[in-house]
Write a protein that binds this DNA or RNA. Structure first.
Length: 859
RNA sequence: GCGGGCGUGGCGAAAUUGGUAGACGCACCGGACUUAAAAUCCGUUGGACCGAAAGGUCUGUGCCGGUUCAAGUCCGGCCGCCCGCACCA
């Protein structure tokens, strides 16, 4: 008897796959095989890889290996999201060169990822920080610019004071920078923007077509895009000028009480020039935080600006104009008309400043004579009152009529407003893709000509943590204007790294194309990605930007992909979590320096007591990550892959525990021992079973094996890896302990082991190959087609049916499948365990559900 | 506040979508092997009760109610937890 040695077996089989070029994806649609593109969100090369990362890739790899066995031409690539702040931080902290630091990390991480035995086509590896990747990005940007999908404007931006750069709206979380956690400030800067809003409607509507995306993610995108239908119209200012407003409730226009402007609305600012108290108000409003708590606590305050506007339906009716801190300059036109009776926020404000509250919508069942607004605004539908020509109309009809009237008077029109805003992509950073633009005093903003791309980063920069190293570089930015030849300066901003990751999935389809981002036909043949796997944290950011990018690439002629959808199927996986530990002094302790016994922890080295903290996502900062390399050395990649996919459903977090790992380890050994003990070649697929295999224990085992095939197949198809794994345990448990000298049973066990090996192969590919070879089967399991269950063996011809009396189970009967109802009824009623419960009762009804259950209702 | 999800043994979880609740794993306990331990293998394990045992009875999926022959699953109302968005006019 031998023991399974992963240290020998795992590298051996990885070599075998490499020699066989097993994972090389040929041209799409080659060999007449349908294509299948599996992709896991590519990693940032931080340098450290821990077991938590493994789960994401293990899931994708199960799908890739399974689809491959099912006869698909599978594309499963890997690359590096290699630009970003940590490289600059490393430069700052220990003088590392960002490029060297990044490339070294990639080397280390690639090797570690390869230890996992992933079925990756490494020939397609890309790194976004290399010019042969980003030069195409620069070319695409220029095409977007030409098409009007990229533009430059002075915009108020979210400024992260710690990272010293601009953040996109999507990167501001609770008013804080998503990475630094610092409160975001507002600054006005010249910015490059991507016109995401050009596709707002399509980005929203097409979500309906993404039926293999989690509803949660679609909902988040719907909310983020935030479509509201309504009207925009103008108020004429008494004494000249206009104020534009957007409203979803034009039906309540006769309930208007005042107009409110954002503190930084142009008119507010203009008035502030002559009125210091308004200027003071603006300054105070600007100080207000934007975090959840701040908004919750902040009182609604305003100031009367001392101007009036004319009501659009009655020029003789004047409304006061206020500036109010709850009006957002970034939504609509930064101004609104307030109808306190039917909007809670307007009501609070009106009560505070004693402004009129006039109800114009009568709720059903209320009397117009007595209806009044107290502390709560009425926001529901009803019948219009106090509204002149709208009186008596339903809210719905009044809305249409009000818009008609606005149109007729030339004051406004129906419109759709989106919460979604354009994507600001300029970052004041060194380690990013340079924006290929030259600023010339004479010619203005000029694109770098295509034949001069790429614009590469200078290697000799000083990174000091203040400002943009590109801007302070002595020579890099000084160039001559490509148009007039005069003195000019390069744009020193670089792209948000989310730009890099918005098209990498397309680059993988044609990763070595030097002339274009990718061949349009090849990319369109592989795309969309059939199965994308990644974290829920990208539900809005990366996934929305990528959807924008594929549309922009399509409309600029790069990618003939009609739908514009990059990812047909999306799966958002849960994290791997682990207990955290702290020393008495409060420092985080890595798990390998802590011993836990009976719920108490001590530091291994010193024996000092340690504190057991919360269960958190594995991370460097909390030191609760289990290093991948150490783990694989001790247990092997298969144990890791098996463990992270077992027990918890893949969309949920899984907690890393040593005990759980032991369970996976034990299973590996059990499988190996069973195969090793078998000691005979296994029958191949299609071999005829020997006589006697159609009865008794041999038949039972064959049925168990084939049912396992059906079940595991279904589970993998439906992303239920934890259940697929439990099926493997069941099959393992079904193997007979001893088979005596029964040749039929020997044959059935060989078949069971062969099928077991095939079923676990997507999860534990190394062990599967080792078992395949030990069972004397030809070739590699990785090249074997997925097993098909014999329907004759998966069909049950005898079923066990429970018999209930008044809903309580009293007996079981074994019946041939599909037995006629009256026969079943007879058997149930005459069952000797059922009769006592019917004693003295009258049978009212007997419910027979074929092959399922019998329920006798008696009283 | 708005939107979405969830609540099942000591723990992670299953449950053919209305049909035997707790598959499978972990942990625990008992047993075998061993001088002993580790490893391995076998077995028990939702709770309460009856029984010497075989076995049996009752009860049980956050709480209250409803629909149904039948509810973890459907409906109504609570309670609790998690996630997303949030002064969006």
């Amino acid at each position: 008897m031998s023991r399974y040695n992963h240290r020998e077996a795992e590298p051996k089989w990885r070599d075998a796959w490499a020699r066989a070029n097993a994972f090389r994806a040929p041209a799409p649609n080659a060999d007449g095989k349908p294509k299948y593109y599996v992709l896991e969100m590519f990693p940032y090369p931080s340098g450290a890889i821990h077991v938590g990362h493994g789960r994401n890739y293990a899931m994708g790899d199960v799908v890739a290996r399974y689809k491959r066995a099912r006869g698909f031409n599978v594309l499963h690539p890997m690359g590096w999201d290699a630009f970003g702040l940590p490289a600059e931080n490393a430069a700052l902290e220990r003088g590392a060169d960002p490029q060297q630091w990044t490339l070294t990390n990639i080397e280390v991480m690639r090797e570690q990822l390869q230890w996992l035995g992933l079925s990756i086509d490494w020939e397609r590896e890309i790194a976004t920080c290399l010019p042969d990747y980003y030069k195409h990005q620069q070319a695409m940007f220029l095409a977007f610019w030409e098409k009007g999908l990229a533009y430059r404007k002075a915009a108020k931006v979210n400024w992260d004071p710690v990272d010293q750069t601009v953040l996109a709206n999507e990167q501001v979380v609770d008013g804080k920078g998503w990475r630094s956690g610092a409160p975001v400030e507002t600054r006005e800067l010249e910015q490059w923007m991507f016109r995401v809003t050009a596709y707002a409607d399509d980005l929203l509507a097409a979500l309906n077509t993404l039926d293999r995306w989690p509803d949660k993610v679609r909902t988040m995108q719907i909310n983020w895009i935030g479509k509201s239908a309504g009207a925009k119209f103008r108020f004429e200012i008494v004494g000249g000028g206009e104020i534009d407003v957007f409203t979803t409730r034009p039906d309540t226009l006769f309930g208007a009480s005042f107009v409110a402007l954002a503190p930084d609305h142009p008119l507010t600012r203009k008035i502030a020039e002559s009125r210091p108290e308004v200027a003071k108000f603006i300054a105070e409003a600007a100080q207000l935080g934007t975090s959840e708590a701040d908004i919750e606590m902040a009182e609604k305050v305003g100031i009367d600006l001392g101007v009036s506007v004319k009501h659009p339906f009655d020029p003789s009716w004047e409304l006061p104009v206020w500036a109010a801190n709850f009006v957002l300059s970034s939504y609509g036109s930064g101004a609104l008309f307030a109808c306190p009776a039917h909007d809670q926020r307007d009501l609070d404000f009106a009560r505070k400043y004693d402004l009129p509250v006039k109800p114009v919508v009568l709720p059903p069942g209320e009397d117009a004579a007595t209806f009044a607004i107290g502390k709560d605004a009425y926001t529901g539908p009803g019948v219009l009152i106090n509204s002149r020509f709208l009186d008596g109309l339903s809210s719905e009809a009044a809305l249409t009529a009000a818009i008609e009237e606005l149109k007729k008077r030339g004051a406004g029109e129906a419109t759709t407003q989106y919460r979604l805003r354009d994507w600001g992509v300029s970052r004041q950073r060194y380690w990013g893709c340079p924006i290929p633009i030259i600023h010339c005093a004479t010619c203005g903003v000029v694109g770098v000509p295509k034949d001069q791309l790429p614009v590469t980063l200078p290697a000799d920069v000083k990174i000091e943590g203040v400002g943009n190293p590109l801007a302070s570089h002595p020579t890099w930015k000084h160039v001559s204007c490509p148009t007039c030849g005069g003195k000019a300066e390069r744009e020193t901003d670089t792209f948000d790294t989310f730009v890099d990751s918005s098209w990498y999935f397309a680059r993988f389809t044609d990763a070595h194309n030097n002339d274009a981002p990718f061949d349009p036909q090849i990319a369109a043949a592989w795309l969309p990605v059939d199965q994308y796997v990644g974290g829920i944290e990208h539900a809005v950011l990366h996934l929305l930007y990528s959807r924008f990018f594929t549309r922009a690439m399509r409309d600029c002629g790069f990618l003939p992909l009609n739908s514009g959808e990059p990812f047909a199927g999306l799966f958002t996986q849960g994290m791997v979590t682990h207990e955290t530990y702290k020393s008495a002094a409060g420092a985080w302790l890595p798990p390998e320096e802590v011993d836990v016994k009976d719920g108490a922890a001590i530091e291994t080295a010193t024996g000092a007591p340690a504190e057991i903290g919360g269960i958190e996502k594995m991370s460097k900062s909390k030191k609760n990550a289990v290093a991948l390399g150490d783990f694989i050395e001790e247990y092997g990649a298969d144990v890791l892959r098996w463990f992270v996919l077992s027990d918890s459903p893949p969309e949920k977090d899984v907690q890393w525990t040593d005990a759980g790992v032991e369970g996976a380890w034990r299973f590996v050994q059990r499988v190996w021992t069973a195969i090793d003990d078998h000691g005979a070649p296994a029958p191949q697929s299609g071999d005829a079973p020997p006589p006697g295999a159609d009865a008794g224990a041999a038949l039972a085992l064959r049925q168990a094996s084939h049912r396992a095939v059906t079940a595991v197949t279904e589970d993998i198809e439906n992303f239920r890896f934890n259940r697929a794994i439990s099926r493997a345990y069941e099959l393992m448990n079904a193997l007979p302990k001893s088979i005596g000298d029964d040749p039929a049973l020997l044959w059935a066990r060989g078949e069971a082991l062969r099928l077991l090996v095939q079923l676990i192969a997507p999860f534990m590919p190394h062990l599967a190959e080792e078992g395949w070879a030990r069972l004397g089967l030809p070739g590699l399991v990785v090249d074997a087609p997925w097993p098909a269950a014999d329907p004759g063996l998966t069909q049950q011809n005898v079923v066990t049916v429970p018999v209930q009396v008044n809903g309580k189970r009293r007996a079981e009967i074994e019946i041939p499948k599909g037995l006629a109802e009256d026969k079943v009824r007879e058997m149930a009623l005459s069952h000797d365990r059922v009769a006592p419960f019917l004693d003295g009762l009258t049978i009212r009804k007997v419910v027979v559900v074929t092959d399922r259950i019998v329920n006798i209702v008696a009283a």
